[in-house]
Computed example of a mutant assay.
Amino acid sequence: MKKHYFKSSMMATLMATALCTGIASCSDKDDVESTLNPAERTVSQAKKHDTALLLCTFGSTYKESLSVYDDVMNDFKKEFPDVDIYMSFTSRTCINRVQAATGIERYELDQWLKAIGNAGYKRVAVQSLHVIPGEEYLSLMNTDIKKYFMIQWFPHIDVLRGANLLSEEEDTKMVADVLYSHYAERLSDKNHIVLLMGHGNPDENYSANQKYAEVQKALQAKAAHKNIFVGTVDYGDMLFWPKEVEENPADRLTDVRTVRSQYPNCIYSQIMQYCEDNGLQPAHVKVYIAPFMSIAGDHAHNDLWGLKALAEGADVNKVELNTNEYSWRERLEKIGFQVQEDFESHPIKEAGADHGIADGCGIRALGSYPEIRRIWVKHLREQWDANAWENGKDYQ
Rank of each mutant, 00 (worst) to 15 (best):
K334E: 00
R123W: 04
H4F: 09
M73G: 04
C26G: 01
L195H: 02
Y107M: 10
S65P: 12
R329Q: 12
E185L: 06
A388L: 02
D70C: 12
A250R: 11
D277R: 00
H199R: 13
Y137T: 08
R106F: 10
D171M: 08
Q270W: 00
P155S: 06
S8R: 07
A311C: 07
G362E: 02
A213E: 09
K349L: 07
V43M: 02
A309P: 11
A388H: 09
S44F: 14
D255K: 09
K308A: 05
F337R: 14
L166Y: 14
V285S: 01
F149M: 04
W112C: 05
V259H: 02
E185R: 06
K334I: 05
A309R: 03
G352R: 07
T232D: 09
A16S: 15
L14S: 07
G313L: 12
E371R: 07
Q340I: 13
F89T: 00
D255I: 09
N391L: 11
E276K: 01
I95Q: 00
N248G: 11
P81A: 06
G306R: 03
Y62A: 08
I289V: 08
A388P: 02
P291Q: 07
T51V: 04
A184T: 01
L165P: 09
G59S: 05
R374C: 10
L54Y: 00
V43Y: 13
G306S: 04
E40L: 13
P347Y: 15
A250Y: 02
V215L: 04
D177L: 02
E169F: 09
G200W: 08
T232H: 04
S327M: 05
V159L: 10
F229C: 05
W305M: 08
V316Q: 06
T254L: 04
V319A: 14
K349I: 14
Y263V: 08
R257L: 09
W328G: 01
N191W: 03
I289E: 00
K334W: 11
E33P: 06
K63I: 03
A100P: 01
H156D: 15
Y268C: 00
I145L: 11
D71S: 14
M141F: 11
A353V: 01
C26M: 07
A208G: 02
P264L: 02
A314D: 08
Y395F: 15
T90D: 13
